[in-house]
Design a protein around this nucleic acid. Sequence first.
DNA 1: CTGAAAGCGCTTACAG
DNA 2: CTGAAAGCGCTTACAG
Lengths: 324, 324
Amino acid sequence: MMPAHSRPTSKDVAAAAGVSQSTVSMVLSGKWPGRVSEATAQNVRDAAQRLGYRPNPAARNLRLGRTRTIMLVVPAITAPFFAAVYTGAAKVAVENGFSLVVFPWPLEADGPFSGPQEAIDGMLASSMGENSLAGMRRPVPLVMVDSDPEGPAPTVNFDVAGAIGDIVAHLRGLGHTRIGHLAADINVWTFRSRALRLAEQVPELVTGRAAISIAAGFETALRLLSSPDRPTALVCDDDTLAAGAHKAARHLGLDVPGDVSITGFDDLYLAEALELTTVRLPAERMGELAMAHLMDVLEGRPAEPALLPAELVLRRSTGAPGRR
Amino acid sequence: MMPAHSRPTSKDVAAAAGVSQSTVSMVLSGKWPGRVSEATAQNVRDAAQRLGYRPNPAARNLRLGRTRTIMLVVPAITAPFFAAVYTGAAKVAVENGFSLVVFPWPLEADGPFSGPQEAIDGMLASSMGENSLAGMRRPVPLVMVDSDPEGPAPTVNFDVAGAIGDIVAHLRGLGHTRIGHLAADINVWTFRSRALRLAEQVPELVTGRAAISIAAGFETALRLLSSPDRPTALVCDDDTLAAGAHKAARHLGLDVPGDVSITGFDDLYLAEALELTTVRLPAERMGELAMAHLMDVLEGRPAEPALLPAELVLRRSTGAPGRR
DNA sequence: CTGAAAGCGCTTACAG
DNA sequence: CTGAAAGCGCTTACAG
């Protein structure tokens, strides 16, 4: 007989089904075929259903020495990209009975990672530098998002080379011959990779660096756009930087896109409001896939690195150069 | 002797300190005074320190019938306001040894709440309607953010009346006599409350409703600004709506702020990019305070409802009417 | 094909 | 002031 106001346990299910606790466990964990008869199994499932049985995670964790907890390491959950990664990852985690905790690890923290590594079963990381990764004490299962595919862990990335190729093709198609790069001043793979691809395809590239903020983007863009042979198009590593560039153009009395075209990355609300041409990153999908991969790794299933396409969204911030 | 590669347990600490497991537990949980001698206590603490002992949460949870898990119920973690609430709440949760899981509950879901209510020790909710709250099956400790202070749970709010008062004073000071309200078309307390306060202070108020998106804000603002005696200032419930209004003004050839002033709520990147006058909401601080309150409730400590000031940030989207 | 028993690591009555 | 023991709810050898 189970107490009035508490949840049923596997013992209650066993009593209701007229079998032992072990049998309940076997059946409900799906390891019964060949060990329990079909009739008994059905019996157990019915009883569990009827009582509304749900296994106690604390007991299972204690027994198995696992926590069913995944840690997501991102610079800041308030950045929309990482919030979207979180959303996708949390969805898949919950579906698999895992919980997801966020550990903030600022981009600037380039030293060895020093977050808690006990009490978690696996880790999802985004935008983590090599030096930080070196801080991992024990080999905790790890999947990385938007990170070096040559690195130590499987990755889920968007197609950086493809996205840069699309931007350059778009700008070249409009007739641009002087392209500038407003680069994020952060030493992580994704930005290094964007710079590399861009340099490969744009021999005349001029580059300015800025921290990721509207104010910093504004300052650096001001400088880039004040030079005598100023670029006619500015490829920005981020919508926030693009917003800064947009403001700088207005400040200099330059028309967008008549005098200067501007592109961003992310597709934030910002991009919609300023009508920025930008690369829409599949952040939520990356989170989902990364967590699915981690689940595969934890189950010992093979996991292939994933590469998702990113769509170039055309808006009013790009056009033919010298239009006015 | 503890195994080479596993974490030390309270048994190991007991052995190292030459006492029993019970004594270790007493000391480390801080319930020892009057039951264990100071010398023994110090001895235990030293041993725990030396071995790097950290209690196994699964075992503690199983024993105590708790989960040390808090559920945060918000419409979407991708919205910067809720992401910031999460950040603040998670910080305080971690400091207290709790983990925080997010359960998405869309604003449109006006029916009784049907998320998991077992396996959590407490709940933090934001922007949840009365009908949803009615779905709570058992009296799980609850603290609400940005919600009706007359409601069933303690709240942590920003000062809506004060913020609306600041906006109106600012606009009146500039000389505006026809003020419009671009209202969020969502039936939750915070927006009802903003509308109410605004109506109290602005007799001539005209109101248009829109879903929270740039596109919907654009459409509704277009309508409001096309009327013969159009408002000279538009108070928007949200920066996203304000961005839509900004776009609508540009579309109609109206100067901002010369022909129409615009204010928002939140202070998103968007607001900085468009140079919007807006109310900066203390979202992260609200998350921190709400979680601290929940910790108080769980410990049986008294918890006062909190009301935080919100700052009106003046930018270029507001000015004297009829300037051009 | 099924069950009885042990044990994961903690906390707390209970005994002394 | 301190310890031995029970038990939270699971899973998994082991026995039959």
